[in-house]
Design a protein around this nucleic acid. Structure first.
Lengths: 209, 209
DNA sequence: GCTGCGCTCCCCCATCCGGGGGAGTCGCTG
DNA sequence: CAGCGACTCCCCCGGATGGGGGAGCGCAGC
């Protein structure tokens, strides 16, 4: 049966065992072909150039270059590339950022085999595929605005135990400004204090551990 | 070739794709046989009873019942059971707790196929198998003592934005006592303040997000 | 029986934090 | 150009935080 061309897929993840699992599932599909694998964002860009897969499954948390940057880089050169985000958590900041970067689908690693191949077919057919679970998480938080880069920077320094004064010195700004940034981001995150703010930022994927 | 009995393996993980990957790798080994799968701790206990695998690969973070509790429960009834921890992070508190619960091996999910099968054979042969990477992490922190249950409880409440007074009221103790617990755990974690302490506890697997 | 440690409580006090207010510059966008 | 938001700085001030000290009780191990 040499019918319609098969969907050419690349999988990008730093866990070899997970790649192996995806390969095993895809091998059982007659209409899907795994043409490339990569363990991080840089490899992904290189492999994409060589193999031009129809659909790319991309993890977000990876060494060297993360998935968001890799998606953005690939989409810049190949706007037609179909990218499906593959991640463990359902952090909304991550999801939103990935979709902004050009992802057309979103898959949790805890999903079943069937859902994965359906997503690949769906995305290849040109449809967006974001599960209701994720869509809700995103909708829940697009209302309250995102943190600015400066606010994220300040919060990141607070997270590692710096006082307002230390953050101010590190950034070359006044302590009052640091306090202003914190006041603003507390309101955005609905945080009760700096510790709570760090926890919420971690939950939403704004900060990483 | 119906030679020596094959090593009977069970894999416990809430990610079906990862289980699939492990199954694919094990299928290529002539001396290893995958006899059972489970998606959480409770299923693991049930499946163990039914199939009595020689070696169990167990994830730590799972819904319903986590891996530590499952390992402890299985080892209580079957002290000879060989348990290998399979996890994403190398948090030392997790590693140490797992080994205390009776794990005989420790595997990072980012390890290669080869290392996994070698670990299975090694553990089945009665050897302990903890990679140097993990052993170092553990050794680095066994010197400074672990947090007490009360301290972990206090820190967990601080992490979600409670003030010392609120924590005191929740626990029915004095605010001074809460401050004492915090002072002690700051010293144990080498934390600069409560926010830093929460971050360090998350890194070490003492707290979960 | 003594020691160590977890847990509890108390004191003092310098410092930090966070909420309230206002205000200026810059750059983007409608 | 007017408005908005990010970023910057300033004021005041009550309350929270954290570092220092000491102390009692109960339980487990040596």
């Amino acid at each position: 049966m040499n019918g319609p061309a098969r969907i050419r897929v690349m999988v990008v993840d730093d866990h070899p065992l997970l790649r192996e699992g995806i390969a095993a599932v895809l091998a059982r599909q007659t209409d899907i072909e795994l043409v490339a694998e990569a363990a991080d964002g840089l490899e992904a860009i290189e492999q994409f150039r060589q193999h031009r897969p129809d659909v790319t499954l991309m993890d977000l948390q990876m060494p060297r270059m993360n998935g968001i940057d890799a998606i953005a880089a690939i989409r810049r050169d190949h706007p037609a590339a179909r990218m499906v985000v593959l991640t463990t958590y359902k952090g909304d900041a991550q999801a939103l950022r990935a979709i902004k970067a050009g992802a057309t689908g979103y898959l949790l690693k805890s999903t079943l085999r069937k859902e994965m191949v359906e997503t690949i077919r769906s995305v290849h057919a040109g449809r967006r595929h974001v599960p209701a679970e994720i869509a809700c998480e995103i909708a829940e938080h697009v209302a309250d605005d995102a943190l600015s880069l400066r606010e994220i920077d300040v919060l990141g320094r607070v997270a590692v135990g710096n006082t307002n004064r230390e953050v101010a010195r590190q950034l070359g700004i006044s302590e009052e400004t640091v306090k202003a940034h914190l006041k603003n981001l507390f309101a955005k995150l609905s945080a009760k204090d700096r510790t709570h703010a760090v926890m919420l930022a971690l939950k939403r994927g704004i900060l990483q551990i």
